[in-house]
């Protein structure tokens, strides 16, 4: 299986561990991710005003590039990039007038006709590779590590455009993690917003949002929380660095990318997964559960 792959700017800079683990985990499943030539930033937000056509040009250019390179699918790891690219594609398919304008603006030899499918890696792993094949490959597995799958907004809404999972009761990441040998915990707030970009100007507003999610997952017994978005990862992780300073008794909950957990479950070498860059280092929790670098305690 071979797909064009859109890394996005955060995965090439702050979230290199996500990028690396995504590619390696895919490789272990026989999925080859070919980085889209000359990809460009998606803009990080889908423009919500009807007169903002220009902000669609960035994400649209990636779709055109995929089509030009002969691809029919663009695979994405970052939940936010996925959301922006997928919504843009959906919008262009529904608005031929806008598509025509953008084609004229982009001046590429082949006009884009909406033929590319934007897909998240979760979708590709669960539906193209299949849970059974993942289960077979999951040696040494996650040994019952208790994981809270966190979806946030971007993988879920708006549901008619994203169409990956049930927005009120999502389960695709849970299914993947369970196939890896994790014990997934049931908890509320799995699809609630972590505060997103509010953190830039108003951390006092985003922190309670992140805290609600962390405490719900913690109360449900999670040892680790899994995400697919570098901004969720940051918000949920960074907040805990502050909580630890303030409250000596605070029990931190490591926030990991689901692909890092895949790599560990497949027994891949996690060097380069960037664990040391997390504010809450996941390694002690992983070691305690006997899951680290394929080395399982007896």
């Amino acid at each position: 299986m071979r797909y064009f792959y859109f890394p996005g700017c955060t995965l090439e800079t702050k979230a290199v561990g996500f990028n690396r683990s995504a590619k390696e985990a895919a490789g272990a499943l026989g999925v080859e991710l070919v980085t889209l030539p000359e990809w460009n930033c998606c803009g990080a937000t889908f423009p919500l005003s009807t007169d903002n056509v220009l902000d669609l040009a960035g994400p649209a250019r990636n779709l055109v590039s995929t089509a030009e390179a002969g691809g029919d699918t663009l695979a994405v790891a970052c939940a936010t990039c996925f959301n922006v690219l997928r919504r843009t594609n959906h919008f262009l398919r529904k608005h031929p007038d806008t598509l025509e304008k953008l084609n004229a603006f982009l001046e590429r030899p082949q006009p884009y006709a909406g033929q590319v499918e934007v897909r998240h890696l979760l979708d590709i792993f669960v539906h193209d590779v299949g849970l059974e094949a993942i289960r077979r490959r999951a040696v040494p597995g996650l040994g019952g590590l208790r994981v809270a799958a966190y979806y946030g907004c971007m993988l879920l809404r708006p549901a008619d455009e994203i169409a990956l999972d049930d927005p009120e009761r999502p389960g695709i990441m849970d299914a993947l993690l369970a196939a890896l040998g994790a014990e997934v915990v049931d908890y509320p707030h799995r699809g609630e917003c972590c505060g997103a970009y509010l953190t830039v100007k108003s951390p006092e507003a985003s922190m309670p949002m992140s805290y609600r999610i962390l405490s719900a997952a913690g109360r449900a017994g999670a040892q680790v929380l899994a995400t697919a978005c570098p901004l969720c990862q940051f918000n949920l992780d960074w907040l805990q660095a502050r909580l630890r300073q303030q409250y000596a008794s605070y029990q931190p909950l490591p926030v990991m990318y689901f692909t890092q957990l895949m790599g560990l479950a497949f027994g891949l070498d996690p060097a380069g997964y960037g664990f040391e860059q997390h504010y809450v280092d996941p390694r002690p929790a992983l070691a305690q559960a006997g899951v680290l670098g394929g080395i399982r305690s007896p």
Partner: peptide, 9 residues
């Protein structure tokens, strides 16, 4: 901050 936080902000 991760890049996407700035760009979105």
């Amino acid at each position: 901050f991760p890049q996407q936080a700035f760009i979105a902000g």
